[in-house]
Design a protein around this nucleic acid. Structure first.
Lengths: 119, 119
DNA sequence: CGTCTATATTGACAAGTATCTATACAGTGG
DNA sequence: CCACTGTATAGATACTTGTCAATATAGACG
């Protein structure tokens, strides 16, 4: 239960969840990603970013929208950044967070049921 | 943060996460599902069931395999059952849990990045 | 260089949860 | 009907985590 930052292994391993036994290490890495997505505030935040023109947003813009304290927003952004869901870039006075669509794509693969259906 | 059992709404709503703003209610329902998947033991358990001939397993068979106490296994099975990930059926002396592939399919849709890529 | 704004970190606290032991419940089979 | 086996529930505990207030850090710009 000590998996906080996501092992980069997740990006390449990940046999689809439903087609074979995971090792417990794989399960831990995957669970780490799902746990990051398992918070309504973070999901809402993700969808907010996704709705922006270039799928990016300045951190301070989120504070008022979410109605949470600035440290709390910063915390969630860090969790998602550490999980590889967001990238971070300083531009001018603010820091812009952007979506990394690939990880979500990987998760979609993991959840693929095709093989299970065919079996 | 009070979402434990998953709102059936999840089964029909769920605009893809990346194509528009979720309501906070939608985010809560989705996060509930992801939180269920956000535990390595449960993911490992899911993959174990998926590896069975008919994607089903007798509850007691999991106790020795997982090396956890029977109540703990029962707890995880209940969490996943309540989330709609598993079905439950009594047959003979045991209770058999089976995968519900549809919810995972829904989640895959939710994570779809196609629209975001095209935008 | 100093101030201001934006973001991150620290420390504390409450709520949630994964796990265990002990116990209750529910079919099965004699 | 009684004992047995398999599963669920209750209660307790340790650990995690989402949140906030307070503080630190880091660029930007006079």
């Amino acid at each position: 239960m000590k998996v906080r930052t996501v092992d980069p292994q997740v990006w390449r391993c990940c046999p689809p969840l439903l087609t074979g036994r995971l090792t417990f290490e794989q399960a831990e890495a995957l669970a780490g990603v799902f746990r990051v997505l398992g918070d309504p505030t973070r999901l809402y935040l993700l969808s907010l970013i996704a709705a922006q023109p270039h799928q990016e947003i300045k951190a301070c813009a989120l504070v008022e929208t979410l109605g949470l304290s600035q440290p709390t927003v910063s915390h969630h952004l860090k969790v998602m950044y550490d999980a590889g869901l967001l990238t971070r870039e300083r531009r001018g006075t603010g820091i812009y967070y952007r979506l990394v669509p690939q990880l979500l794509s990987v998760l979609r693969q993991v959840l693929s049921t095709d093989a299970a259906i065919m079996a």
